[in-house]
């Protein structure tokens, strides 16, 4: 009897704690979305109000008058291009690391992975000067290239693992038929490795889409990314909180969808290089 009561109580405790976890994780998003639906007057009420008449004005103004739409488009172009480029470069490299034997393979692997540890500010300084000298500031291509510093390692890392999990017998059989390594990759291994490729593409997209510092330093107007735009609202005294939260919502929704799609692999991807 006592044991049953104990279990029941502990089940309720578990339910309460799980609810608390969810509440803490989700509440900031709730607050972000509701604030984005407030007019400036409602947003500045003290203490904050929870019930009000929602308006989509912030979204309309931010998107079409302040140019957030264009920065979202820039972010999209940059994230998609850098992801495609990282996949094109990274997939063959991952295949080679998974399948070929050669000297210095371990060192090469280690070098790819350690890019994860380097602080982006270390690269931002020289990259800014180089881009300035080459007249490449404020161009999409500049961000597309620099984002490869973190996208390429993640693609290589995830895809190498994926290729390793494909049985080697398939390669062998194809080679006996006279297939080249390139044919083996493109016809046999790549179709089987699609799950890993998709996950690494999602990662590459999320990382590029979320990035602020390079966007801030390397762009001004034409290639300005959405996070950099959101930050530029923060200047001045009378901050347009509704608009800032509307922009934030627009930035966050795509990554949250992608993150939920890849939720099983997200943790593994983030531990890149640190777990064997």
């Amino acid at each position: 009897m006592a044991a049953a009561a104990y279990t029941r109580r502990s089940t309720w405790t578990q339910i309460a704690l799980l609810a608390l976890i969810m509440l803490v994780c989700v509440f900031p998003f709730y607050w972000m979305v509701t604030t984005s639906l407030k007019t400036q007057i409602v947003a500045l009420e003290s203490p904050p109000v929870w019930l009000f008449e929602p308006t989509l004005n912030n979204y309309r103004e931010a998107l079409f008058e302040d140019g957030v739409f264009r920065t979202l488009l820039n972010s999209l172009i940059i994230a998609v291009c850098t992801t495609v480029l990282a996949l094109c470069l990274g997939i063959p490299a991952a295949f080679a690391l998974a399948r070929f034997e050669f000297r210095g393979k371990k060192d090469l692997w280690f070098w790819f992975i350690t890019n994860r540890m380097i602080s982006p500010i270390v690269l931002a300084l020289p990259f800014f000067l180089i881009a300035r000298n080459l007249g490449m500031l404020d161009l999409h291509i500049t961000l597309i290239l620099i984002y490869l510093t973190f996208n390429l390692p993640i693609v290589i890392w995830i895809c190498t693992d994926q290729f390793r999990s494909i049985p080697y017998d398939l390669d062998e059989a194809a080679r006996l038929e006279g297939a080249s390594q390139f044919t083996i990759l493109s016809r046999i291994c790549l179709p089987l490795a699609m799950p890993g490729v998709a996950v690494s593409a999602i990662f590459s997209f999320i990382f590029s889409w979320n990035e602020l510092m390079f966007g801030l330093v390397l762009t001004r107007t034409t290639a300005k990314t959405a996070p950099a735009m959101a930050v530029s609202f923060m200047e001045g005294y009378n901050l347009p909180y509704g608009k800032i939260m509307a922009t934030s919502t627009l930035i966050v929704i795509p990554v949250l969808i992608f993150a939920l799609l890849a939720s099983k692999q997200l943790v593994r991807g983030l531990t890149m290089g640190a777990v064997k």
């Binding site: 959101a230 923060m234 993150a259």
Partner: peptide, 19 residues
């Protein structure tokens, strides 16, 4: 729901903090 915070754009976390 645990997946959400770590995917959130860092800059947006900062803006949320401000608000």
């Amino acid at each position: 729901s645990l997946v959400l915070p770590m995917a959130t754009t860092y800059a947006v976390v900062g803006l949320l903090g401000q608000v």
